[in-house]
Amino acid sequence: MNEQRKERIVKAFLWVTGLTSVFILLSIIVYIYVNGVGIISLEFLTSYPYRFEYGGIFPQIVGSLLLVAICLLFATPIGIGSGIYLAEYASDNILTKTIRFFVETLAGIPSIIIGLFGLAFFVHYLFGFSLLSGGLALGFMILPWTVRVSEEAIRAVPNSYREASLTLGATKWQTMWNVVLRSATPSIITGILLGLGKAIGETAIILLTAGSGLEAFLPISIFDAVGSLPVYIFMLATQGHTSAAFDRAFGASLVLVTMFLIINLGALLLRNYLVRRQR
């Protein structure tokens, strides 16, 4: 009897804590949406900001998209290449162990250090505050992510596929391209989408490498400074003191969170689809 009562108490406690933590997490999203939805309009999304806290956020939205595009252009090929090498070509030798160790290390480097490195190397020595500097530094951040998911995805392809292809006379490269990569693609995309979600909300790196976030124009070349949503939110949130600034910060946060959720939802749906397909 005593044990059963305890059981009930514990159960009630767990229900409460479980729902509380979910409530806390969701309440932030709800808070952003409730406060931000008022300012969202087509004009807000498509016009240029001026005088710091007026106007729209069009250049910031485009800037964020361009930054993650450059980041993906850099990180995806290298990530998939590394993944193929680690999973298919290399046996378990010192080199692959070193590579894995370094990939893990890169994954553990705090983003501010990558930002500081980007500031010193890309900005000061090479390209200045620019789309390219920001995109590459972001690429450094998600590279370990793309390497890991690619390797796992390629390893997960059943060996029977490879053998079947090789028996039919295909070369190793053909097998790789036509069979292995093709069946690993959805999982790789899932992983890359998750990396993209990390990249689009990253602030410190972009603040140090890409520009002030207040840019009221679109970049024409990759060497132009570029505005971005996270840095713009940072500027408005810390420096704004009028309701106009906070409204825009909420609006920009709403757009950023929506982008993030869409990307993550895409990854989630894709993964569920994969799991179902495997069964």
Binding site: L65, L66, T185, L218, P219
Partner: peptide, 25 residues
């Protein structure tokens, strides 16, 4: 399907970039 999905993602990214450039002066 997956290839089509990939192509679509690529096209969307390129399209956004191009549209962005159209707006630019």
């Amino acid at each position: 399907n997956t290839i089509i999905a990939m192509v679509i993602v690529a096209i969307v990214i390129v399209a956004i970039s191009l549209i962005a450039l159209q707006f630019a002066r």
